[in-house]
Design a protein around this nucleic acid. Sequence first.
DNA 1: GTTAACCTTGACGTAGACGTAAGTTATCGC
DNA 2: GCGATAACTTACGTCTACGTCAAGGTTAAC
Lengths: 169, 169
Amino acid sequence: MPPKRQAAAASDEAYLQIGEVAERTSVTQRTLRFYEEKGLLKPPSRMDGGFRLYSESDVQRVERIKRLQSLLGFTLAEIKDMVDAEEVKMQLRAQYRPEAALSQKKVQVLKAIEVTERQHDLIRQKVAALTDMQFKLEERLATFRSWLDQIDEQLKAEAKAKSKPKIKV
Amino acid sequence: MPPKRQAAAASDEAYLQIGEVAERTSVTQRTLRFYEEKGLLKPPSRMDGGFRLYSESDVQRVERIKRLQSLLGFTLAEIKDMVDAEEVKMQLRAQYRPEAALSQKKVQVLKAIEVTERQHDLIRQKVAALTDMQFKLEERLATFRSWLDQIDEQLKAEAKAKSKPKIKV
DNA sequence: GTTAACCTTGACGTAGACGTAAGTTATCGC
DNA sequence: GCGATAACTTACGTCTACGTCAAGGTTAAC
């Protein structure tokens, strides 16, 4: 049995080592380090010895990345843009206090809106294309099934002709 | 000016050389040869000298491939499966006459149905995930816009306070 | 304080999807 | 029939998204 480790950090949050995150997200440790390298994951905190310590939100982020990638076919670069846009949101929420640069904050929000709208548009295009494909596949399935019926009837007729070989084809 | 070529082949159909297909589909000639190599495009007919001659349906096929790839993130291997499934359809339609191997035909149709159903399921999953994302993006946009409104109001209040600097913040 | 399990940073390898260059051959317009 | 332009094959290069050692440091439990 491997020794169970309950890594607890300075805060009250339960922190996870890379191995556990890898297991829970079904990606390899290599992938997690790679995402960090590429800026998809922010550099996590570390233990004194240098071991990475991830939070639950990191786990969720990895899961989102994976969904965007495998299910929807975005590249990591595109996904980085998306998660960066979300970072903007968080940053804005965090710096809700400094009323100082109000107009600057406006610029940021406007930018975030622009990015989000672009993403939304992209998604809409994909949904449209996919529903179109879906429809065509349904049509095709209907065609196939009708063919199958026809074949089955022909097979039945054939069998009949064989057992009672009177009628000429 | 480059010399305009109107390549006409044995049939009545207007055939296209690789350059024109590339231009019209916005892919490179290399890509077209690569797709042929990988079985995504059937080897086209050739001129006496060996130049490839594509048909209009080839153009459409390339366009479908590109849509499946860039918009929906399928790999070329997956796309090959799909177009192969379509080939089955065409083949069945073509060999509609040889009543000989009827049960064999049935097997083919069943296989085609299976493949198509898998594809259909995959698409449904993707649509579901995408519409979910779409919804979340819309929520986020609403949030951003309300923030923007708040900021604008604050800015207005600020301007007022500046022109009439009586009230203390 | 030793040891097994876990983690670290390189660094090289790979599969998919083409890009790009070289050298040669075809076709077309004149 | 000749020059300009387009296509052909062959082959090595590239970028993405990791996989896979290798050589070593860290942690927890005994």
